[in-house]
Design a binder for these strands. Structure first.
Lengths: 111, 111
DNA sequence: CCGTTATTTAACTAATACGTTAAATATGCA
DNA sequence: TGCATATTTAACGTATTAGTTAAATAACGG
C-alpha cells in the first residue's frame, strides 16, 4: 500500500476484520477488548488493526482510565464517496437509461 | 489483502498507479502500452496491475490482434458506493444539519 | 518463414502486511 | 506498594505485494 491518504484509506478498508470493526463502531464507541471479542485473533492483532484505521483517519481514539475507546470518523468515508462520484456515470442506473435512450435516438437515424 | 470480493476491490484501489489507470480508462478503452506510457514503471509491472484490476472486476479485457484493450467495469464501483452508503449518516452534511437542529430543539427545552 | 510489435511469464529481490507469543506499560484500587 | 485489568510494544515467522530484467508467447505483415 502506498503512503498517500486515499491509498491508506482504501488499504485500511481492504481487510475484512477492519471493515467488521468499523461496522461495530457504527453502532457506537467501543474499547479494544470489546472490539476484539467477535474475532478469533489475538488482542495485539486487533490493536494493530486499530492503528491502521487510525492512521487512515477512519477512527479516533481517546483514553479513559485504562480503556482506550475508538470512535468512527466521518471524513475519510466522505472522501471515498466523493472519489467514487467521478465514476458514477459508469454505473448509475438512471444515467444508463439515459444512455440507452440516446442510443435509441441514434438508431432511429439509421435505415 | 483477504480473498473476498470487497477486499479485492478495496485492495485494488489502494494503489495510486492502479487508480491512475482507472482514471485513464474512464476516458475510454486503452491498450497496455498506452496505459503504461504515463508511468515510470516497466511494462510487466503495468501488466500485473491490470491483472489485479481484472481480478477485482474493475476492468475487463479483450484481445484484438496483438493488442489487449482494457475497459472500465461498473459493477465493483457500484458495489463500493453501496458499501459506503451504510456510513452515509456519519458524514452527510444535511443530516448533520438535521442533527444540529435536533440538538437545538433539545436545548430549547433547557433553562 | 522472419522480423517487428505487444504483452505476459519466469525468476528474483526488497518491502510490507498480518499473525503469533512474551514482555512492557498504563491505570485503578485495596 | 502491589495486584488486577487493559492495551501496546518487541521480536519473530510467513505470505503477499510491487518492482526489476530477461525470456517466452502471440499476432501482424512482408
Amino acid at each position: 500500500m502506498a503512503t498517500d491518504r486515499l491509498s491508506r484509506i482504501f488499504g485500511a478498508l481492504a481487510d475484512p476484520t477492519r471493515r467488521a470493526i468499523l461496522a461495530r463502531l457504527s453502532e457506537g464507541e467501543a474499547t479494544v477488548n470489546e472490539l476484539a471479542k467477535p474475532f478469533s485473533i489475538s488482542l495485539p492483532a486487533v490493536s494493530r488493526h486499530l492503528k491502521v484505521l487510525e492512521a487512515a483517519g477512519l477512527i479516533s481514539r481517546s483514553r479513559s482510565a485504562q480503556w482506550r475507546t475508538s470512535r468512527l470518523e466521518a471524513a475519510p468515508l466522505r472522501e471515498v464517496t466523493f472519489y467514487m462520484e467521478k465514476y458514477r456515470r459508469f454505473w448509475d442506473e438512471s444515467l444508463n437509461r439515459l444512455e440507452q435512450h440516446l442510443e435509441l435516438l441514434q438508431d432511429e437515424d439509421k435505415p
